[in-house]
Measured scan of single mutants.
Amino acid sequence: QGEKVEGLQAQALYPWRAKKDNHLNFNKNDVITVLEQQDMWWFGEVQGQKGWFPKSYVKLISG
């Protein structure tokens, strides 16, 4: 089970394309609201879409 977080935002360092239905698509420089953190994967929201993404593709910009 991941840790729920509030008020964290991350900026995409690279584009990410979903490999599964529960993954989040985003483009480089998109700002993602992080909702949950697990070891290597984070759950977040961007442009009304929610899903999992690899944390190595983003950098935290707040929180």
Rank of each mutant, 00 (worst) to 15 (best):
Q1E: 04
G2W: 09
E3G: 08
K4P: 05
K4W: 11
K4D: 02
V5A: 13
V5G: 09
V5H: 02
E6Y: 10
E6P: 15
E6L: 10
G7Q: 15
G7D: 11
G7V: 15
L8R: 11
Q11C: 03
Q11E: 05
Q11G: 03
L13R: 09
L13W: 05
L13S: 04
L13C: 06
Y14R: 12
Y14D: 10
Y14L: 14
Y14T: 08
P15W: 01
W16A: 03
W16C: 09
W16Y: 05
W16F: 11
W16E: 00
R17T: 10
R17M: 11
A18Q: 03
K20S: 13
K20W: 09
D21C: 08
D21K: 10
D21G: 11
N22H: 05
N22D: 13
H23L: 10
L24H: 01
N25D: 12
F26S: 01
F26G: 00
N27W: 02
N27V: 15
N27S: 04
N27D: 08
N27H: 02
V31W: 09
V31C: 11
I32T: 00
I32A: 02
I32C: 00
I32L: 07
V34H: 05
V34Q: 00
V34L: 04
L35R: 08
L35C: 15
L35W: 15
E36A: 13
E36R: 09
E36W: 10
Q37N: 06
Q37P: 05
Q38T: 05
Q38H: 03
D39M: 07
M40Y: 04
M40K: 15
M40T: 10
W41H: 04
W41I: 01
W41E: 02
W41Y: 12
W42M: 08
W42S: 02
F43R: 05
F43E: 03
F43S: 03
G44E: 00
G44P: 00
E45K: 07
V46I: 10
V46R: 10
Q47M: 10
Q47N: 11
G48L: 06
G48D: 12
Q49C: 14
K50V: 06
K50P: 06
G51S: 00
W52V: 00
S56W: 04
S56T: 13
Y57W: 06
Y57H: 06
Y57A: 15
V58M: 00
V58S: 01
V58Y: 00
K59S: 10
K59L: 04
K59A: 08
L60A: 08
L60C: 14
L60F: 03
L60V: 12
I61T: 09
S62C: 11
S62A: 15
G63F: 04
G63V: 09
G63T: 14
G63I: 09
